[in-house]
């Protein structure tokens, strides 16, 4: 702390950067808040009738609000679980066992950024429709049907996992960079811990920030994803928003504002959940 304060410029010179900081902050705030405020005003200001929350009321009364939101949340949770279970061991193994494979994994994990979702969904659609008659009675076909169950479309989880790869990989990679994984696992193993347990007890707790980041990005991605879900014919929240707001201008803006608030609330919840655990482990200074 002492070092930080001595680094800060004192007196008059401190005022100048503060002024700049204020200006930059104000610009950024205006950029984000003005359109937002305008949207809010537009939704609550009914011409001739004054202020009314009627537009928001319509949303909650509209068919499918709860079910689509729940579906999106379930999809997000499942995607986070799958992508983390897949990527954490992979990234750690990459670091410990095969650092030379790094460029390959780098490229593979960047592919989803290059391949547009529309191409992805076209591919998935083709595979799903491909079900020759003579396979109709086999478990293969039943699997194809099961993963398209509209109540919980596993196929969307699979697609979202692929789409989240680049973000999750980068977040985890950045987190691992700050941790000496080899020494930590070896220290744990010399303390009588087997390899997998060393990973869980010595490495993962030090990746909390990275895991949280990865979950964040995945959550935001799944909540806002429209193309794949729409084209495969499912109705999670983003698709529902577009469908319900189609004709009414005021309602559509209200839905946007609401979905923004919901996303914020979820991210906030995730932060406080992660922050809560990190505060428990955070340094308790004695001095």
């Amino acid at each position: 702390m002492a070092r930080l304060t001595t680094l800060l410029p004192r007196g008059v010179s401190a005022r100048r950067p503060r002024l700049w900081r204020g200006a930059v902050l104000a610009c950024a705030a205006a950029y984000f808040l003005v359109p937002l405020a305008a949207s809010v005003v537009f939704t609550v200001d009914v011409p001739g009738k004054g202020l009314s929350l009627d537009a928001y009321g319509q949303i909650f009364r509209a068919d499918g609000f709860t079910s689509s939101l729940l579906l999106s949340l379930e999809l997000a949770l499942a995607t986070i679980a799958v992508v983390l279970l897949l990527m954490v061991p992979a990234v750690v193994a990459l670091r410990l066992g095969a650092p030379r494979l790094r460029p390959v994994v780098d490229i593979v994990c960047s592919l989803p950024l290059v391949v547009p979702p529309i191409a992805l969904v076209a591919g998935i659609g083709t595979v799903l429709r491909w079900g020759p008659e003579h396979l109709a009675a086999t478990p293969f076909f039943q699997t194809l049907v099961a993963i398209q169950n509209p109540a919980f479309p596993v196929v969307l989880v699979l697609a979202y996992t692929v789409m989240a790869l680049p973000f999750v990989y980068r977040a985890l990679d950045a987190g691992l960079r700050a941790v000496d994984v080899r020494t930590l696992t070896e220290a744990a193993r010399s303390c009588g811990t087997s390899w997998p347990r060393a990973l869980v007890h010595a490495v993962l707790p030090n990746l909390r920030g990275a895991l949280l980041n990865a979950s964040f990005l995945t959550l935001a991605l799944v909540l806002g994803e429209f193309t794949v879900a729409q084209l495969l014919g499912f109705q999670p929240f983003a698709v529902w928003v577009v469908n319900v707001s189609g004709s009414q201008a005021q309602l559509s803006v209200a839905v946007s504002v609401l979905s923004l608030l919901i996303t914020w609330a979820l991210l906030l919840a995730l932060t406080s959940f992660g922050g809560g655990t990190s505060r428990r482990a955070a340094p308790r200074r004695k001095e």
Partner: peptide
């Protein structure tokens, strides 16, 4: 993990998320 050897490393190897006591007790907890 079954060699029954204790090792001190050249680089600092304490678990950053545990305090000193829990670091020492790590093996016992496992």
């Amino acid at each position: 993990h079954r060699r029954d050897t204790g090792m001190v490393f050249q680089s600092y190897s304490l678990f950053p998320h545990l305090n000193a006591l829990d670091n020492v007790a790590f093996g016992l907890r496992m």
